[in-house]
């Protein structure tokens, strides 16, 4: 049974309080209508329930979230999935800056483009590997300081002469992998990353994400995969290892 809540004109504090109350009581799925800029939806919430948000949730949606699935029928804002630990976010639109900042686990699928510094400082530990899949393009500093995790950029609908990622892509990166579909202009890359061959394992991984993307948002797996992907990894785990002299 899906429960429906109307968020029209409701202040974020009250809305989030209500949502948490219902989730605490064991409601499995909540449809929130008329979401209009309310911040912090799903912050720090633990569980395996599902939220469907119609409209535009505000900043820091799903920050520190631990397990939920949130489907946004609209655009996300800045800080979507900030320091998220587990769960899934599916955005039928675009999201803003610092999407997936310091993500530790779980997945974010974004149908369209994302803002600056997306995936900054993502981490991973053993089999807990977070992932961000971006359908369109990404702004500057994608994957900055990345210490783990996976970022996939599909660049669907890329216009002529449009860059798939912004400047300083992967700058300071020291862990994790980025898969970027098609050519990445050299001038977009941070100095800590390099492009390497895709292995069969990489290809299988990317296929899996593309299939999921298509399940959520439509499209054609074959045509997406027809353009080869580039794999970006950091030169080393210790980009600043030689920076210092002992006093």
């Amino acid at each position: 049974m899906t429960m429906t809540i109307d968020a029209k004109g409701v202040y974020y504090k009250e809305l989030n309080h209500n949502l948490r109350n219902h989730l605490d009581k064991g409601v499995k799925e909540i449809l929130v209508q008329n979401v209009n800029g309310q911040r912090y939806i799903g912050d720090g919430v633990t569980g395996s329930q599902r939220l469907i948000l119609e409209g535009t949730p505000g900043n820091d949606m799903a920050a520190f979230m631990d397990g939920l699935e949130i489907v946004v029928k609209g655009n996300g804002q800045d800080g979507t999935g900030n320091t998220m630990n587990q769960g899934r976010i599916i955005v039928h639109g675009h999201t803003g800056d610092t999407t997936g900042y310091a993500m530790r686990g779980g997945e974010i699928f974004i149908r369209d483009y994302v803002g600056y510094r997306v995936g900054i400082h993502m981490k991973e530990y053993k089999e807990k590997i977070p992932a961000i899949v971006i359908g369109g393009t990404a702004g500057d500093f994608l994957g900055e300081y990345m210490a783990g995790g996976i970022v996939v950029v599909l660049g669907i609908g890329l216009k002529e002469r449009e860059d798939i990622v912004g400047d300083y892509c992967g700058t300071g990166m020291h862990g994790g992998i980025m898969y970027i579909r098609g050519q990445i202009p050299e001038y977009n890359l941070g100095k800590e990353v390099k492009i390497v061959e895709m292995t069969d394992e990489d290809k299988a991984l990317v296929r899996g994400y593309v299939e999921r993307y298509v399940t959520y948002f439509g499209g054609n797996v074959k045509s997406i995969l027809s353009k080869p992907f580039n794999k970006l990894i950091p030169y080393n785990k210790r980009p600043y290892g030689n920076l210092y002299t002992s006093w």
Binding site: T98, Y101, R117, I120, E124, Y125, Y145, K237, Y240, G241
Partner: peptide, 18 residues
Amino acid sequence: TRMIPVGSDAISPAPHHD
């Protein structure tokens, strides 16, 4: 405890980028 791979530098950026 930090959730980063063994042997990686643990880098804290100068600002919080949010």
